Computed example of a mutant assay.
Amino acid sequence: MKAVAEMFTMGPGNKDHHPALRCAVGVFVPLITLTLIGRLDLAVFASFGAFTGIYGRNEPHSARFRSQLRAGGFMLLIILCASLTARIAPALGIEGVAYSWLLTAATTLVAGLASVVVAAWRLRPGGSLFHIFAFAAIASITAQPPLWEAMLVAVLTAVLCLLIGMSSRVLKSHRTPWKRPPRIRHTELERRAIWLEGGGYLVAAGLAGTIATLVGQKLGFGHTYWAMVAAVVPLVGHSTRHRVSRGIQRIAGTVIGLVLLAGILLLNPVPWAMVLVIAACQFGAELFIARQYFVAQVFVTPLALFATLLAAPVDPNLLLRDRIVETVIGAAVGVAVVTAPAVWRRIRA
């Protein structure tokens, strides 16, 4: 009942419209530019490069710059590795079912390693959800654009987000002192916790990816990485109850988000209108992500699916089906992973 009650409880605000506006502009400008020049094949690289602006949302300017610089640089590395994977594997004859399993294995490694890096740098938001999404989505693209074009778009988008993150320094009333952020140091206990958390991401993503791949091959589902993304959502939280609640909210928010998406798709929006929807959903997601995860997820679902449709148009009905099935699989696995230790302790007791 507490988990259900949290879905209708709104946390206190903390000038959330500021980072929400920065993130919305950071994704809108690159996408509308690509739309106008007819290069929507590069849209996915701009979308993931824009994740740079998500980090350091309420930090002072100097700390935000460091966070976004590290987060953006690391995301660019993930994008490069994903793009190279999509090119090298087919050249080695790894295709079809074999490539699906390779992608699952590689994404699982990204889930664990990215979690460790993010925690070591104390980046917020924590975890490797964005890195799982970016790596698997890009590595799943069969018709890759020229590598230099893809990376140029991603780099320019990341730089734009860095500039937007510093833009409020123009206003004296919003300017914070520029001081070198203190060096990050970890105690032995913290280092152990970081590696344990990385192990949790590895297990949750790997298990969800394996189940989703097996189910997908038998029933014809695609986008198995959505299950891996959903599986790591419950891993973020300060208690088992809160983590289970996030898993439930992920499923409920996805269902409502899919209804919203279906309604928008009935209008048959043109590409520039889809970019406006993406920017609006990015604003909504960032506005509520720290206050009410259920509401934020309602915006995240059409945001993710419209970004997919913009880059590679497919049957929307298949996307809707895949999204809900993979989300349920992933969230269930994530909840099982976070509750397993407590269940084991009770059995032993």
Results as ranks from 00 to 15, higher is better:
2 K>F: 11
3 A>G: 04
5 A>E: 13
6 E>M: 11
9 T>I: 10
11 G>M: 14
11 G>P: 13
16 D>K: 12
22 R>Y: 14
23 C>V: 14
24 A>F: 14
29 V>L: 13
30 P>M: 08
33 T>Q: 06
35 T>S: 10
38 G>I: 08
39 R>V: 09
39 R>K: 11
41 D>N: 12
42 L>M: 09
43 A>P: 12
44 V>K: 09
49 G>E: 04
51 F>I: 10
55 Y>E: 06
57 R>D: 13
57 R>P: 12
61 H>D: 11
67 S>H: 15
69 L>A: 15
73 G>T: 12
75 M>T: 15
76 L>K: 13
76 L>E: 15
78 I>R: 13
83 S>M: 14
87 R>Y: 06
88 I>F: 11
94 I>K: 00
102 L>E: 00
105 A>W: 02
105 A>S: 06
106 A>Y: 09
106 A>N: 04
109 L>N: 00
116 V>T: 01
121 W>P: 02
125 P>R: 03
125 P>H: 01
128 S>G: 06
128 S>L: 05
128 S>Q: 06
131 H>R: 01
131 H>T: 00
131 H>C: 00
132 I>N: 05
135 F>D: 07
135 F>T: 03
136 A>S: 10
137 A>R: 02
142 T>W: 06
145 P>I: 04
145 P>E: 10
145 P>A: 08
146 P>L: 09
147 L>S: 05
148 W>H: 13
151 M>V: 06
153 V>S: 08
155 V>M: 12
159 V>I: 15
159 V>M: 13
162 L>H: 11
164 I>S: 09
167 S>Y: 10
169 R>K: 07
170 V>P: 03
171 L>M: 13
174 H>A: 10
176 T>P: 03
177 P>L: 13
177 P>H: 12
186 H>G: 11
186 H>W: 12
190 E>R: 12
190 E>A: 11
190 E>P: 07
192 R>E: 15
194 I>T: 07
196 L>T: 10
197 E>C: 01
197 E>H: 06
202 L>D: 04
204 A>C: 02
206 G>C: 07
208 A>M: 05
209 G>I: 07
209 G>L: 02
210 T>M: 08
214 L>A: 12
217 Q>T: 08
218 K>Y: 02
219 L>W: 13
221 F>A: 00
222 G>A: 11
227 A>P: 01
229 V>G: 00
230 A>N: 00
231 A>S: 12
238 H>K: 02
238 H>Y: 00
245 S>E: 00
247 G>V: 05
250 R>M: 01
250 R>D: 03
253 G>C: 03
256 I>P: 02
262 A>H: 11
264 I>Q: 08
264 I>T: 05
269 P>F: 09
278 I>R: 01
282 Q>N: 11
283 F>G: 04
287 L>S: 02
296 A>C: 10
297 Q>M: 14
305 L>K: 05
306 F>N: 05
307 A>W: 00
308 T>E: 10
308 T>N: 09
309 L>W: 02
310 L>S: 04
310 L>W: 08
312 A>M: 05
317 N>F: 06
317 N>Y: 04
318 L>M: 00
320 L>Y: 01
324 I>Y: 02
328 V>L: 06
328 V>N: 01
331 A>H: 01
334 G>K: 06
337 V>G: 09
339 T>D: 05
339 T>R: 07
340 A>M: 13
343 V>T: 12
343 V>W: 15
